[in-house]
Design a binder for these strands. Structure first.
Lengths: 237, 237
DNA sequence: GATTTTTTTGACGCTTTGTCAATAATTGAC
DNA sequence: GTCAATTATTGACAAAGCGTCAAAAAAATC
């Protein structure tokens, strides 16, 4: 915010304002409720001015998603830095995922929209690049923990890159929370406590890989509750 | 198709025709390319007639998704019936998931659209019910295999319902294929062979649960290739 | 204070959805 | 076979949203 002219700061500020106005509409009323006319009305600017900031409606959504991805990355980084052994650090990241999806559900929902081709395709190359970079960095954080584990002798990587290893946990947590958020009535299907189930599956997967310093599930479960506390206190909402 | 009047059959036939026309547009050109005017034009019927069949555009998508869900369920059922021990039957289902997502990518993509609130919310209660039922039955098939495994002494369920147990594998396969289909450039992130990675993770998760009659991964991998053959020969495309 | 540059504006063109009164086709009673 | 009643089809139309762009306003520069 420093090395910028007044004009540039004004523009940035207004951009923030647009996004701040757009997010609750998008989250609470859905994509179709977010109209440029409405946004312009609430902003007390003409529609054309909005289009000076964002070339189309989708870009606004993408910009919001970037904010959300950045929050997630922050949580990951915090989690990865927790002083503990490698397995516990991985648990902390899983925990961050869980809390992000549940407590920052708005962010998770917006992030999800990126997976819609309709939106992704209209994103500018620049923002696409930012997003790829965000994913890359998030992956880097987790893969780092895995590499530490290998280096420290806690884990043996089975004919896979660290990233492919991480991919499994990513799929597990992402998949479960996507299903929780969008599957009509998991409980009716018999999945009464999906969150606990996923903790257990993650724990079991680690066991399957023989990740060192295992602990009984009950203990891991309690530990994740505490970790959640610590990771999320950063998000004072 | 039997106990129906000629009229009813005609209506059903035209419904099929609409869906057959809509699917390639939706799959190849995306949701926004699917317009009611265009569809009516190609059908050589007026738009109003389309609206006699489907109350809105979204319902067409939902109807297509139902067809896809039904195909998936069929694959599941075929896989679950393969003569083998419980662990191999579970592998066969995982395999069906994998092939469905990769070889029937159009179906998988359409199915995914249901997870979009914009679409789901506009679905008629009747079709919502059908979908829930489809999910319920698919879950039933897989949970059945798990219960068989428990009954046969191959597996011990750890403080979970069979459905919650299945949920883990569901999340893993669903998540991974959703990521594969929508994540911009997994390879750039370091995930070179996500499909193989997921097979390995699934295999490891089973090991973690101590599911009986384990086999070396290489062997499991080859077996899944064969199973794929058998399961998919049903989908002569 | 005049001229140039930048920013803002909102009416307009275009597309798409979904409706509905008018029209056409079908049915079945006699 | 005819005709009234029912049912199905049609396409013009209203409504709403996106994105544009020439004109107007504001800011910057000299």
């Amino acid at each position: 915010m420093e090395g910028l002219t007044r004009k540039q700061r004004e523009i940035l500020e207004r951009e923030r304002q647009i996004l701040a106005l757009a997010r609750p509409i998008l989250v609470e009323e859905g994509y179709s409720a977010l109209s440029m006319d409405r946004l312009a009305g609430q902003m007390e600017y003409a529609k054309g001015t909005l289009y000076n900031h964002f070339p189309n409606k989708e870009e606004i959504v993408v910009a919001l998603a970037i904010e959300s991805l950045e929050l997630r990355r922050t949580l990951f980084e915090k989690a990865a830095l927790m002083s503990a052994n490698s397995r516990e650090r991985m648990m902390a990241i899983g925990c961050a995922c869980e809390r992000y999806a549940l407590q920052c559900a708005e962010h998770f929902a917006v992030e999800q929209m990126l997976r819609n081709a309709m939106i992704w395709e209209k994103a500018s190359p620049k923002r696409q690049e930012i997003i790829r970079n965000c994913e890359l960095r998030a992956m880097g954080v987790v893969a780092g923990v895995v590499r530490d584990a290998v280096a420290g002798g806690d884990l043996e990587l089975p004919q896979m890159t660290a990233e492919e290893f991480v991919f499994g946990f990513w799929a597990l947590t992402y998949g479960s929370h996507a299903l929780i958020a969008t599957s009509p009535s998991l409980p009716d299907i018999g999945v009464v406590n999906p969150v606990r189930a996923i903790r257990f599956h993650g724990w079991t997967l680690m066991n399957g890989y023989n990740w060192k310093q295992p602990m009984p599930f009950e203990q891991a479960d309690r530990m994740m509750d505490e970790m959640a506390e610590r990771v999320m206190q950063h998000v004072a909402q």
